[in-house]
Design a protein around this nucleic acid. Structure first.
Lengths: 111, 111
DNA sequence: TCAGCACTATCGGTGACCGATATAGTGTCG
DNA sequence: CGACACTATATCGGTCACCGATAGTGCTGA
């Protein structure tokens, strides 16, 4: 499985606990301050891909939180150990890229 | 222009000085220890895309370095100020993603 | 009653990416 | 000498992540 930037965002959104699809979308856009968005296609197709990879599992709603469902039933997803590990590896790879950029002086402002 | 991971690698490879296409490919694979590779299509199409965006310019070979050309003439490319700035922004964005991952405890090993 | 919201889902199109292929000069090994 | 590997640029067909539009549904508030 390839870990694309968008799928990494999905994994990271789920790292703090199970969420439903729409909640993932909201969490990603919230945490990144709107710089990263998820189209509906990307979101649900991404979830299915992650399910097939065994990095996500569908779980029961748990505490059945506040907002009234209304419409199709919410589907909750949780990160598996494999999913967490995949996210960790990708983050380490990204950290190395950033480190290289710093070493090259690429991150200094063009003052 | 969207800055994909591969195009960021191209920009970073050129941050240390002008290079020709094949040299970019070699530099990227070298620096990432082989974890990031560039297919021929990605490489040359990516270069053309970056040229159109004004983030790269074609330059003269300069010092006409060691290895004998042999075959098609080498084409050298250099990073523009805009290209450098684009790389910087993307690196900052990535750094923030990594920072988030650290804050979530996602980067600790599964000991 | 009608609008709007929350939510899941699919579809067609775009474009990044890949590997194969073409072309071509040079060096090397048997 | 011939076969091969290497450097180097470029294009082509295919795949797949991604996007926005569209659809459908049930609740709430005006």
């Amino acid at each position: 499985m390839t870990v694309t930037p968008k799928t990494l965002q999905i994994l990271m959104a789920l790292a703090e606990g199970p969420l439903h699809g729409y909640g993932i979308k909201a969490a990603v856009e919230d945490r990144t301050g709107g710089t990263v968005t998820l189209g509906a296609g990307t979101l649900y197709e991404g979830i299915h891909r992650l399910l097939r990879a065994g990095w996500l599992v569908e779980v029961e709603g748990g505490i059945e939180d506040a907002p009234p469902p209304g419409g199709p039933p919410r589907r909750y997803y949780a990160l598996t150990t494999e999913g967490r590990e995949a996210a960790r590896q990708e983050l380490c790879r990204l950290a190395e890229v950033v480190r290289h950029g710093e070493a090259q002086g690429l991150m200094e402002d063009v003052s």
